[in-house]
Design a protein around this nucleic acid. Structure first.
Lengths: 343, 343
DNA sequence: CTGAAAGCGCTTACAG
DNA sequence: CTGAAAGCGCTTACAG
């Protein structure tokens, strides 16, 4: 394979300076038709494509953002990534995928790459409570936007779900179906999303008046296993429960395993609403009512906010909340009379 | 925020040449303890981090690969991306996420970025039949590895699933359960994966002898909608069918919608095996038997092969086949006697 | 062993 | 309007 053509080669072939070539390519110049023809010809015979690395170094920006997420194999983050990627490409940015598996070292490493100019900016999604190291590393970090989850104590700009209002509405829905003994499988303590959802849940139950009761709230990691275990505990210790709100699709999936094992039927025996709606919940039997995250909007808003930060034209609002939609399906039904959840 | 420190600043602060700093940082030099101390001190007081862009330009490589996939919100590709990313990070490479939505223009654009040195190499996954443009663009393209799907007519190195053997085994499994009227919802014609799976299916049925019959094979796009429509047609025109093999999870999900609508129960009324196993099939009712893709292995092998290409130490085999595993669950049962699939 | 200098391939302020 | 030259921040062949 021949050596790759550089702008210098084009300059020689077209008999104009590299300056002119560069300007022509970047549209900052108008040239006589004849010159244009010569350049175009040189461009195509040499099959010239600019070296983006050199361009970035010279311009002082990489036109690349880092998308930092815990796990791309998790459908929630995969869908978020898809919306971010689409928005980024539309705005002329590439997306470097940075998977952390929630390892703080990796998170810190990716934050540093903003300073080192590897990224123009970072969209940052973390899924574990911060021990202070993230907060610390974020001092003076520019061009940084949080997505989905906050870092406790930070005032970085961010785009989050309307957790409180969403879960409040979902819980209302459960209550309106007639349920009075309701439980929640919630996310980890110290995560903003979990905290807000927990709050929304508790307030909705409290607002329903005396007869209505929060049977239990479990703090779980956002994993299938945690949901499975919490459901076991719930059914053992609170068989009077008639409805459950799960704080994520994984928690729901985990609970479902437990319900299957015990022969408990969703809808008829136990009503359920889950948060996220990234799994094919409409195709479960019965279809599962869920509090859907608007990931396309979250991705778009986050990218816009980040571009605002990068270009130093910050959006008017540093914190955006994306509404959640309650998608009504068939997993919530009126509670059965005096029948308890026993094996 | 102060201007970012460069290697030159470090050189000044530590009172050694930039050459030495560079060599020290890259481990290609042994220095007296005292010098080391001075450098380390300068490094940390200046909070120096190398500019990866400059390094890449200078070295002529970016330590970044492009991962080209049709759609990251598709769990199949999300899981593939997760394994690739993990392998890449372990080998010191970053991964630039390149989503094409199967648009040829985007695919071509990303291929060009290898030449322009933006990527050291590309892992390429395409999902639509090539009209010749891809094949054409691939001439002389170095450091390129196909994943999951071939490009017809190309001899690029690649990592693919053991489609034929996998589907043959899955179909055998259906036949051994007693089915004699079997259908397939297959992927698009002209896609290697679909073609090989179709072949495996047909051969297994043929090998079962006269009584056993391929009722129908539908060529579908790999989408839920296509699966839904094909299932409608199948049930209308071939009500004698007792078992179906679906060529992807989306096709299965689509068929499931149709079955639901018609009140046909999987397992008891119609036996099913699907290919992929990226959806939570174990949690469906009944749990769905599937031909699982070993995506972790596929990602790892593909990355190793790509690194071989990049470093010009190609692996001994240019084409690797990853085995598929039949995961036995409960969606295949013996056919019911003389009962037909009617509404 | 160490460092000055050239080079990676662009962009752009500056001078003509 | 056009181009020579400096500069982006590194690496490394080369000379001392």
């Amino acid at each position: 394979m021949a050596r790759k053509a550089t702008i210098r080669d084009v300059s020689g072939a077209a008999n104009v300076s590299v300056t002119t070539i560069s300007r022509y390519l970047n549209g900052s110049i108008r040239l006589p038709a004849e010159t244009r023809r010569r350049i175009d010809e040189a461009l195509s015979t040499l099959r010239y494509t600019p070296n983006p690395l050199a361009r970035s170094l010279s311009r002082g920006r990489s036109d690349t953002i880092g998308l930092v997420i815990p796990d791309i194999s998790n459908p929630f983050f995969a869908q978020l990534a898809a919306s971010v990627e689409a928005a980024a490409v539309a705005r002329g940015y590439g997306v470097l995928l940075c998977v952390t598996l929630n390892h703080v070292e990796r998170e810190l490493d990716y934050i540093r790459r903003i300073e080192s100019k590897h990224f123009d900016g970072v969209l940052f999604s973390t899924n574990h409570p911060d021990d202070g190291r993230l907060l610390d590393a974020l001092k003076d970090v520019p061009s940084f936007v949080l997505v989905d989850e906050d870092i406790s104590g930070s005032d970085m700009p961010g785009v989050f779900a309307e957790n409180h209002a969403g879960v409040y509405a979902a819980t209302r829905h459960i209550i309106e179906a007639g349920h009075r003994k309701i439980a929640m499988l919630s996310g980890p303590r110290a995560l903003m999303s979990a905290e807000e959802r927990r709050q929304g849940f508790r307030e909705a139950v409290a607002a329903a008046g005396p007869g209505c009761e929060t049977v239990a709230v479990y703090d779980c990691a956002y994993t299938v296993e945690a949901g499975e275990a919490a459901a076991e505990e719930l059914l053992d210790q609170h068989p009077e429960t008639t409805a459950v709100f799960t704080g994520s699709d994984e928690l729901f999936l985990g609970m479902l395993k437990t319900l299957r094992r015990r022969g408990i039927r969703i809808g008829t025996d136990l009503s359920v609403v889950t948060c996220d709606d990234v799994e094919p919940l409409a195709l479960f039997e019965p279809p599962i009512t869920s509090l859907r995250q608007d990931l396309p909007m979250m991705g778009r808003e986050a990218l816009d906010m980040l571009i605002g930060e990068i270009t130093r034209k910050p959006l008017p609002r540093r914190h955006i909340r994306v509404p959640m939609d309650l998608v009504l399906r068939e997993s919530v039904r009126p509670p059965r009379r005096r029948k308890r959840l026993v094996r």
